[in-house]
Design a protein around this nucleic acid. Sequence first.
DNA 1: AGCCAGGACACGA
DNA 2: TCGTGTCATGGC
Length: 301
Amino acid sequence: MGESRKLAVSWRDGACSIRGFDSFDLHTTCQCGQAFRWVRAGNAGQLEEGVVQGRFLRLEQRDAELVVHPPADDETIAVVVDYFRLRQSHTAVEASIAGIDPTMAAAVDSARGLRLVAQEPWECLISYIVSANNSVAQISRVVENLSRAWGKPIGSSSRYSFPAPGDLECASQADVLTCKAGFRSRSICEAARRVARGELDLNAVTAMDYHAAKQELIRLRGVGEKVADCVLLFSMGKFEAFPVDVWIERVVRHLYFGGEKTSQRDIREWAADKFGDLAGYAQEYLFAYARLAIPDRLRSG
DNA sequence: AGCCAGGACACGA
DNA sequence: TCGTGTCATGGC
């Protein structure tokens, strides 16, 4: 999992072209349900628009080339490269997982080029508090509502930055409820207060090892093992995390436990033993594999 | 009308 | 420790 690839970056007409990365699929990565602010632009093709670190990004993949549409300054390119971990040799990760057994080979085949993106911990935390007993489409809607209500407008993009902890702390629970956050509104407000007041330091949590960090996150209302694992995996670089949701529970039970009902705890232990350091990547391919049976229109957002 | 969605939590046995 | 009802909200 070393970050060693050398990328080639070139500009033309204000757009920037990044080359030199290996296995990467923009659309698969943006629409797999790990991040909630990406919108596919156009019906087909590889064009995605999203907001990362307060920047509006308009990205287009042309095979082995990733185009960052204007404005594409040095800092924006750095944000894109870090977010998608483009310096990481992903072919090796996929080969390693596919080599585990035929089922995992099929799972990797179903979503080749799927990356684990490096989200911002604060936004990721709130997003996954919102995710509880919710659909991907609805989560995206609520995150966008929160941004529109308390974030800052980004140029002429019609999009808004995700609100900082201090900005969200100003919101009342009733205000958050108007964003359609439902019963999660109280959890959102409490998390905002604790982070804004420095009672919870997400950078410090990121620096902890997996188990210590998880224990810390779970102290928050609305954060159980599954949500904590998502935050750890999608924003804190803890690749051993294996979030167990209803989809993972179903697909693992069916593919590996002969259809017998298995506790989430058993599945987590099984995954840690079977996948080790790559459990998080294995989980994402299994998640994509499981959801493949569902018609595309249900996932488009 | 009823079930489900990238669950968490309080409760009771 | 393990199962169960409940929590908003929208799509099917």
